[in-house]
Amino acid sequence: MAEPWEEDEGPVKKFMFVNRKAPYGTIYALESLEVVLISAAFDQDVSLVFTDDGVLQLKKGQTTDGIGMKNFSPTYRALEGYDIEKLYVDKESLDARGLTEDDLLVDVQVMGKAELADLMDEQDVVMSF
């Protein structure tokens, strides 16, 4: 019989959130972040991938006063406090946009497509925004 503390554990699945869109032009980046924050409460194995224009979500220096929208980029820095620490950024997408890791507002792991492919392959649930 399972001990009470074991029953509390529940299943842990690997969730990957794939972010491919720039912030502000569409709401996908912001609403993806909202799902990520909720997923933290379920104690799942969560990872985030930023590829294509999604790498722009992590760009330092976002200043949205001029467009009248809320700058939600500080929230990425809060992810660590939710134990969401697996942030992977596609090197090729950074390069294509003239960016480097130094341009990003959080600590991430920059990796190539092959490594990202391996990571995606081992997930239980992949959601793309």
Binding site: F15, S39, A41, F42
Partner: peptide, 19 residues
């Protein structure tokens, strides 16, 4: 709430996105 989506991810064999 969004927890319902995460819960579906935990309980279902597959979660498919249509967008």
């Amino acid at each position: 709430g969004l927890g319902q989506l995460v819960e579906a991810g935990i309980e279902c064999d597959r979660v498919l996105t249509f967008g």
